[in-house]
Amino acid sequence: MPIPPDDFPRRTLMSGLGGAVPKYAAREVEGGGFSAFVPDEEHQQAYDNAEDLATQLVGYARRKEKENPSWTRQFNVDRIRDGIKEKVRSGAWDFTADEQQWVMKRLTALLEHPEAGAPAGSAR
């Protein structure tokens, strides 16, 4: 399982803390400190999901390019971006806005450079 690359966004803890006094949502980490980021396991899962989606979308994008030769790659990528946003908005998929941007950047890289097909976090 490749580790998430440095450019993959890390989620922060989401919480609703009521009251009049400002509060800071954090979790205790080893060594007695605190972190506002999700645990490594959740970060890894979010990366795995994003990498898997980007990889699957390569085939979809190439198929659409063949089926619709008049479409530019940018038009096709924009349609895919809109589709991802709609899936997230409907609750079908769980990707943050930053993760969606990363998926699109990864998809573009895979379309432009098929040899970059190795997972983004793996050693090359």
Rank of each mutant, 00 (worst) to 15 (best):
G33D: 04
G33C: 08
G33P: 13
G33V: 06
G33M: 05
F34V: 15
F34W: 13
F34M: 13
S35L: 05
S35A: 10
S35E: 09
S35Q: 04
S35K: 03
S35D: 11
S35G: 04
A36T: 14
F37V: 03
F37E: 07
F37K: 02
V38A: 06
P39Y: 00
D40Y: 00
D40H: 01
E41L: 00
E41W: 01
E42Q: 13
E42N: 05
H43P: 01
H43V: 04
H43L: 06
H43K: 03
Q45E: 15
Q45L: 04
Q45N: 09
Q45P: 01
Y47V: 03
D48M: 01
D48Y: 01
N49E: 05
N49C: 05
A50S: 15
A50D: 11
A50R: 04
A50Y: 09
A50K: 06
E51Y: 04
D52K: 01
L53F: 07
L53N: 08
A54D: 09
A54L: 09
A54R: 03
T55R: 08
Q56F: 05
L57S: 07
L57Q: 14
V58E: 14
V58N: 12
G59A: 12
G59Q: 06
G59C: 05
Y60I: 11
A61T: 14
A61Y: 02
A61Q: 10
A61V: 14
R62F: 03
R62M: 11
K64P: 00
K64W: 03
K64M: 15
K64S: 09
E65D: 07
K66L: 13
E67A: 15
E67N: 14
N68W: 03
P69D: 08
P69T: 06
S70F: 09
S70N: 10
S70H: 11
T72N: 10
T72G: 15
T72P: 09
T72M: 07
T72R: 10
R73N: 06
R73V: 12
Q74Y: 02
Q74L: 11
Q74C: 02
F75L: 08
F75N: 09
N76C: 10
V77M: 12
D78Y: 05
D78E: 14
D78G: 03
D78L: 10
D78I: 04
R79V: 12
R79G: 07
R79A: 13
R81H: 14
R81P: 02
R81M: 06
D82C: 02
D82N: 12
G83P: 12
K85T: 07
K85C: 04
E86D: 13
E86H: 08
E86R: 15
K87H: 14
V88T: 12
V88K: 09
R89P: 01
R89S: 12
S90W: 02
S90L: 15
S90T: 15
S90Y: 03
G91V: 12
G91S: 06
G91Y: 06
A92P: 02
A92M: 10
A92E: 15
A92N: 08
